[in-house]
């Protein structure tokens, strides 16, 4: 800007800008000073959570109840639609239709909180387990896991009897079981006393409840998979697929922190069937085990089966060096389920 004319224009522009800035400042001051009470009457404070419809886990259980009700309403309407379609195809009086309607009417999403003075634990008799994977199957059915994604919360490893603690040479793709000289170690979430997965979560979307169950808030998980990396037992699963279960195939007994259908791209894992155990039941895997290898109970209750097992047999944990203090125990009950003889292996 060497000529005088340009300088003049430049200065004019500057003055205008200055004035504009001053006006903006004044209007802010104006807004801040005057009519505060009037504004307060008219305006209501709205949080980001409220706008986006996502809830904060720290707000407590009232929030979970609300979300559970919303989910229940949504799933019920989906279920009703599916049932309606089925009934129009098969007829109102067909058994499928009646079953579907009954299922939809029973559908519930709970938000049962943890009860005080309880600490759940599970134990598994390595001598008894035959590696039949029925607990895996029951878990998939109970927990509304996507059926065709190859994702399961329980993984069963076949190891040499000597290597059971370190799990050296373990494999999970065996086809024949039980084999002599091998033991079968089902591994799922250990619900550790000091879980590393909850420590690393950057947004506190996973935490340990008062009764010892480690849960995940599926509506808060950002899917960074850091917890999957941190778990020394490989127990966490990342949901790579959109939930695509037929609403009529759902297990109607659901919990907001447990087996409610998970959204895509969140982490999920075993919750010891929170929907059953918080109401006094046992997990589905315990119920399904054909040889009774699994024991579940309350550690603080002296009469519980888990206490009997610990007192009678003594238990060990997987990977004690990881420093996680698991509450899933393994023990050798002594009475071995006989393995298949050589001729049976095909």
């Amino acid at each position: 800007m060497s000529n005088g004319n340009g300088k003049k224009i430049d200065e004019g522009r500057r003055t205008t800008l200055k004035l504009l800035a001053l006006a903006a400042l004044l209007s802010t001051v104006d807004f801040a000073v005057f009519d505060k009470s009037e504004f307060k009457k008219m305006l209501r404070k709205v949080g980001l959570d409220e706008i986006l419809g996502v809830a904060d886990a720290r707000q407590g259980l009232g929030d979970f109840e609300r979300r559970a009700l919303e989910k229940e309403k949504m799933l019920k309407s989906l279920c009703d639609q599916a049932a309606e379609q089925l009934c129009s195809e098969k007829g109102e009086t067909s058994s499928e239709c009646l079953l579907a309607r009954k299922k939809c009417s029973k559908l519930v999403v709970k938000s049962t909180p943890a009860r005080e003075g309880k600490r759940f634990a599970m134990a598994l008799d390595v001598d008894k387990c035959i590696g039949c994977r029925r607990c895996e199957y029951a878990c998939v059915m109970e927990n509304n896991t996507v059926r065709d994604a190859g994702m399961d919360w329980i993984r069963i490893y076949e190891v040499d009897r000597e290597a059971v603690e370190q799990l050296e040479g373990a494999r999970d793709d065996y086809l024949v079981a039980p084999k002599p000289g091998k033991v079968y170690v089902p591994v799922a979430c250990m619900h550790c006393e000091d879980p590393p997965c909850t420590m690393v979560c950057p947004v506190v979307a996973t935490w340990k409840e008062k009764d010892g169950i480690v849960v995940i808030d599926y509506d808060k998980c950002i899917g960074c998979k850091y917890c999957v990396v941190a778990c020394p037992y490989g127990a966490r699963r990342f949901n790579l697929f959109k939930p695509r279960l037929n609403p009529l195939d759902l297990n109607p007994n659901m919990h907001i922190l447990g087996n409610v259908p998970r959204p895509v791209h969140v982490v999920e894992k075993c919750t010891w069937c929170i929907q059953r155990t918080r109401d006094g039941g046992v997990p589905a895997c315990v119920e399904a085990c054909p040889v009774g290898a699994r024991v579940f109970g309350d550690l603080k209750d002296p009469e519980s089966p888990i206490r009997k097992v610990i007192e009678e047999y003594g238990v060990f944990v997987l990977k004690p060096e990881a420093g996680t203090n698991p509450r899933f125990f393994y023990f050798f009950g002594g009475a071995r389920t006989p393995p298949k003889s050589e001729g049976d292996e095909k």
Binding site: V200, P202, V203, C221, C224, Y226, V264
Partner: peptide, 27 residues
């Protein structure tokens, strides 16, 4: 790179700046 690997980038945008868990190295 982190965001492309994130399951829910839109949730990350809301929750990450809150620094809720200072024991997490990611924060």
């Amino acid at each position: 790179g982190i965001v492309a690997n994130l399951g829910h980038p839109e949730r990350g945008l809301i929750y990450m700046p809150r620094f809720e868990n200072l024991r997490s190295m990611l924060d």
